[in-house]
């Protein structure tokens, strides 16, 4: 039982936190700008590389410089929005999807050009579980990741429910026409959406970098599971995205649990398919997602 908790459930939760933070951004852009942003994963990678440079420059802990990286990444993303997305505000969504596809290629090649493709690390060495908590095995990083995720979620919750801009974002996501009629400035809402999505993506990327390593494809590799998490939770529903991320993270890890006998239930070669299978099943049987997001 302890093994199940330590080796399957806790890693699943950590992975789920990373997916969840990334999925919030996807869900919000989907809800407010109405398109699936393929460049989201590479925005994440960009934020991680900026963090990496800041760490190398300052020698501080990655989590301490991450907020600055969030600000810088947000600035870049706002610039990209102005140049590449703004011309398509009234166009069909497919134009934005294709534009984000082009942007994905561009961001990644810029990263590869300037930082190179060699593997890098935010932190070296391995982390053994904390003695104090045994037999439950939590490493310091995992506690930091889970704790920081909870804090970020609370911050997102406060922004969305207590601030004017957050309320405007939710209103726009629920019903853009109505929101525009009530005098909400759509452009401000869009900028806030990019800022929130990009910052959370950077956080997710830095957590992933702490748990594994830093490389130029890391965000892209997360893109499809994050999409799956956003769908699962319900489009335009940030809390849903969190739930979706956790479910997918945990399901991926549990798929390798030897439920019957001693071999994994599902060949780990199919691990990547777990998220998709859940997503497809969800779309077919409950297309509005767990949290009753918008249904097209």
């Amino acid at each position: 039982m302890m093994a199940f908790l330590n080796f399957y459930l806790i890693p699943g939760v950590v992975l789920g936190c990373i997916y969840a933070l990334g999925a919030i951004g996807i869900s919000l852009t989907f809800g407010i700008l109405r398109f699936s942003n393929f460049a989201h994963g590479d925005t994440m990678t960009l934020g991680v590389y900026i963090t990496l440079s800041l760490v190398q420059f300052s020698g501080l802990h990655p989590l301490l410089v991450a907020p600055l990286a969030m600000v810088l990444t947000t600035g870049i993303v706002l610039g990209l929005d102005r140049t590449f997305y703004k011309p398509f505000r009234t166009s069909p969504a497919i134009m934005l999807v294709i534009a984000s596809f082009g942007l994905m290629l561009m961001i990644r090649s810029v990263i590869q050009f300037f930082w190179g493709v060699q593997l890098q690390a935010l932190q070296t060495g391995i982390q053994m579980p904390l003695e104090a908590l045994l037999p439950v095995r939590f490493s310091e990083n995992h506690l930091l990741i889970i704790g920081a995720t909870v804090l970020l979620m609370m911050a997102v919750h406060l922004v969305l429910t207590r601030t004017k801009i957050g309320k405007a974002m939710r209103a726009t996501s629920d019903n853009p026409e109505l929101a525009a009629l009530t005098g909400i400035d759509t452009e401000v809402v869009i900028r806030a959406t990019w800022a929130m999505g990009a910052s959370l993506a950077v956080a997710a990327g830095v957590f992933l970098g702490l748990d594994t390593h830093v490389e130029t494809m890391m965000g892209f590799k997360l893109l499809l599971p994050m999409f799956a998490a956003a769908i699962l939770g319900g489009i335009g529903k940030p809390y849903g995205a969190v739930a979706g991320g956790l479910v997918i993270g945990i399901a991926e890890e549990l798929s390798a649990y030897p439920w019957i006998g001693t071999t994994p239930l599902l060949s780990p070669g199919y691990k990547g398919g777990v998220a998709f299978a859940i997503m497809v099943a969800m779309l077919i049987w409950k297309p509005q997602g767990l949290f009753r997001g918008r249904q097209f």
């Binding site: 399957y8 590799k221 071999t263 780990p268």
Partner: peptide, 23 residues
């Protein structure tokens, strides 16, 4: 004792490893 394929590029392999260590 165990011979298992894994899908590359995932963020965590703790579950696979634990299952592999069973034998």
């Amino acid at each position: 004792t165990a011979n298992q394929v894994h899908e590359p590029n995932k963020a965590s392999y703790r579950a696979e490893i634990t299952t592999l260590s069973g034998g």
